Lab assay of single mutants.
Amino acid sequence: NQASVVANQLIPINTALTLVMMRSEVVTPVGIPAEDIPRLVSMQVNRAVPLGTTLMPDMVRGYA
């Protein structure tokens, strides 16, 4: 089972991601792999991401 990136807090739209906003968790469906967390830092979300939501590739500008 692969860990995915999950929002550690509410992340408002257009917010640049920081390490404290994300955690890794084994979830279904699988989202962005946890090993990509360092790559996600400073990328912006293109929608509001509620606490506990799995980050999907289409939620992060420039990721996919």
Rank of each mutant, 00 (worst) to 15 (best):
N1P: 15
N1Y: 14
N1I: 15
N1L: 11
N1F: 15
Q2A: 13
Q2S: 08
Q2V: 12
Q2P: 14
Q2F: 11
A3C: 10
S4E: 00
S4P: 00
S4M: 02
V6I: 10
V6R: 03
V6H: 02
A7P: 01
A7Y: 01
N8S: 15
Q9E: 11
Q9M: 08
L10K: 07
L10R: 10
L10D: 12
I11H: 00
I11C: 03
I11V: 11
P12S: 14
P12L: 11
I13R: 07
N14V: 03
N14T: 04
T15E: 07
A16W: 13
A16E: 05
T18H: 04
T18L: 06
T18M: 06
L19K: 06
L19Y: 12
V20L: 15
V20K: 14
V20I: 11
M21L: 07
M21Q: 04
M21K: 03
M21D: 03
M22E: 00
M22F: 10
M22P: 00
M22Q: 00
R23Y: 04
R23S: 07
R23H: 05
R23V: 04
R23K: 07
S24R: 09
S24Q: 10
E25F: 05
E25W: 05
V26Y: 13
V26N: 08
V27S: 08
V27H: 05
T28E: 15
T28A: 08
P29L: 08
V30W: 11
V30E: 15
V30R: 03
G31F: 01
G31S: 02
I32A: 02
P33H: 10
P33K: 13
P33G: 09
A34L: 04
A34R: 05
E35P: 07
D36V: 08
D36N: 07
D36R: 06
I37C: 05
I37W: 03
I37P: 01
I37E: 03
I37Q: 04
P38D: 11
P38I: 14
P38T: 11
R39N: 05
R39Q: 12
R39L: 11
L40I: 13
L40G: 00
V41P: 03
S42T: 12
S42K: 09
M43A: 08
M43G: 03
M43I: 04
M43C: 04
Q44T: 12
Q44H: 10
Q44K: 09
N46R: 11
R47I: 06
R47F: 09
R47A: 11
A48F: 12
A48H: 12
A48E: 11
A48W: 08
P50A: 12
P50H: 10
L51Y: 12
L51H: 12
L51W: 13
G52M: 12
G52R: 07
T53V: 14
T53I: 12
T54R: 03
L55C: 02
L55F: 12
L55D: 02
L55Q: 00
M56S: 12
M56C: 11
M56V: 13
M56N: 11
P57W: 06
P57E: 07
P57H: 06
P57K: 11
D58T: 10
M59A: 09
M59I: 06
V60G: 00
V60N: 01
R61A: 10
R61Q: 08
G62K: 05
G62I: 04
G62S: 07
Y63E: 03
Y63D: 03
Y63F: 10
